[in-house]
Amino acid sequence: MEAFNIFIKSIFVDNMIFAYFLGMCSYLAVSKTVKTSVGLGIAVTFVLVVTLPINYLLDTYVLRPGALDWVSPELKSIDLSFLSFILFIAIIASFTQIVEMVVEKFTPALYSQLGIFLPLIAVNCAILGGSLFMQQRNFANIGQATAFGLGSGIGWLLAIVGIAAIREHMSYSKVPKPLRGLGISFIVTGLMGIAFMGFMGIKF
């Protein structure tokens, strides 16, 4: 039940885009059409769902203060948490590389659709941000960490598809010249964020 709660919360209340601005760069750069934004959203969700449990295990059994207890009791006092940035980003970057190669080998059609976005995912703040929030929030088990990854990914997908749809429609409206493109996207995202704040406090 707790995992489901985390899942819902990370989609609506702690939305990666609207509450923490994570992954904004690709969010603004790729949201020109709905079709490509759906592809990128799914890829981000997939990478989040896989890397979060891996990083959770890494954090619990290697990095945390006292985590090396299972190797031998003498290692109990070791605190490796300062290494977490470099290990997390290494896991994410190498996993993105693997996904890219696997997709290229087995489903070339999907690869040509996602091609340019896949390497971009390694430097998407939403992915590393997910791992760092996971570490900060001390989830009780791997199920909760996975639920958080899935929820954050879906929240990100929802946000990017939403803005892409709005931007497609906005091409017909008369926006003041200096505000066109980037400026209005920022303001629309801000307004969407205010709308999403209406979800604050929901609980199951």
């Binding site: 609207f18 509450a19 923490y20 601005f21 003041p176 010249k177 200096p178 505000l179 980037l182 400026g183 209005i184 920022f186 303001i187 995202t189 801000g190 307004l191 969407m192 964020g193 205010i194 704040m197």
Partner: peptide, 19 residues
């Protein structure tokens, strides 16, 4: 203080800068 206002402030900066 709320997060969405940061986006709107940046939107306004872009507006002024590009004008």
């Amino acid at each position: 203080i709320l997060p969405p206002m940061a986006l709107i402030v940046v939107g306004c900066i872009i507006w002024v800068h590009r004008s």
